[in-house]
Amino acid sequence: MPTRLNPYLSFDGNARQAMEFYRRVFGGELALNTFGEFGTEGEQADKIMHAQLETDSGLTLMGSDVPPEMEYTPGTAMTVSLSGDDVDELRGYWNALSDGGIVSVPLERQMWGDEFGACVDRFGTPWMVNISQPAG
């Protein structure tokens, strides 16, 4: 397997819902493992220890719930960026990700010629979508 770089998102108890949402957005196969599968009992047992979404278009997104003994600090130091020239695919992702979220930059043509938008989805994950325009 070649080396790959992919986002790993942390959630405060709603990783299952978030990753299932991302599966609806991007399609693909979602694998979910709970803390209980690895011996944790009690309230934390049903929380997600590791989730991995592999899409048909080659995207990989991972995530988990932060255990109570670790600090959960949502931040703005990381944004997930989607870019390419498949207008229908990227607009579809944009529409799904921004639905119920906060749009900071509407998806529209920008000064550099591409369509670009930025939002934070309903789970607090920041996204940027850039649709490249054909050269010429």
Score class of each variant (00 low, 15 high):
residue 8 Y to A: 10
residue 8 Y to Q: 09
residue 10 S to L: 14
residue 10 S to T: 13
residue 10 S to A: 15
residue 10 S to I: 12
residue 13 G to D: 09
residue 13 G to H: 12
residue 14 N to E: 15
residue 15 A to H: 08
residue 16 R to T: 14
residue 16 R to K: 15
residue 17 Q to S: 12
residue 17 Q to R: 15
residue 18 A to K: 14
residue 20 E to S: 07
residue 20 E to L: 06
residue 21 F to S: 10
residue 23 R to M: 06
residue 24 R to V: 05
residue 25 V to S: 11
residue 25 V to P: 11
residue 26 F to G: 03
residue 27 G to Y: 12
residue 27 G to R: 13
residue 28 G to A: 04
residue 28 G to V: 03
residue 29 E to H: 15
residue 29 E to R: 15
residue 30 L to V: 07
residue 30 L to I: 07
residue 31 A to N: 05
residue 32 L to N: 02
residue 33 N to F: 15
residue 35 F to S: 01
residue 36 G to Q: 05
residue 41 E to T: 09
residue 44 Q to D: 03
residue 45 A to H: 01
residue 45 A to E: 02
residue 46 D to C: 02
residue 47 K to D: 00
residue 49 M to Y: 01
residue 49 M to H: 02
residue 51 A to N: 02
residue 55 T to S: 01
residue 56 D to Q: 04
residue 59 L to I: 12
residue 61 L to Y: 01
residue 62 M to V: 03
residue 63 G to F: 00
residue 63 G to T: 00
residue 68 P to S: 14
residue 70 M to N: 07
residue 70 M to A: 12
residue 70 M to Q: 11
residue 70 M to W: 09
residue 70 M to K: 06
residue 70 M to H: 10
residue 72 Y to I: 08
residue 73 T to W: 07
residue 73 T to R: 09
residue 73 T to V: 13
residue 73 T to Q: 14
residue 74 P to A: 10
residue 74 P to K: 04
residue 74 P to N: 08
residue 75 G to W: 12
residue 77 A to N: 10
residue 78 M to L: 09
residue 79 T to G: 04
residue 80 V to D: 06
residue 83 S to K: 11
residue 84 G to S: 09
residue 85 D to H: 15
residue 85 D to N: 13
residue 85 D to I: 05
residue 86 D to G: 04
residue 86 D to W: 11
residue 87 V to W: 11
residue 87 V to I: 07
residue 87 V to S: 07
residue 89 E to M: 04
residue 90 L to C: 08
residue 91 R to S: 13
residue 92 G to Q: 08
residue 98 S to F: 05
residue 99 D to N: 05
residue 100 G to K: 02
residue 100 G to Y: 11
residue 103 V to K: 08
residue 103 V to T: 14
residue 104 S to P: 10
residue 105 V to R: 14
residue 105 V to C: 04
residue 105 V to L: 10
residue 107 L to M: 09
residue 111 M to T: 03
residue 111 M to F: 15
residue 111 M to W: 04
residue 112 W to G: 00
residue 119 C to E: 11
residue 122 R to E: 15
residue 123 F to W: 05
residue 123 F to Q: 07
residue 125 T to W: 06
residue 127 W to Y: 14
residue 127 W to Q: 09
residue 129 V to D: 15
residue 129 V to E: 15
residue 130 N to T: 14
residue 132 S to C: 06
residue 134 P to Q: 11
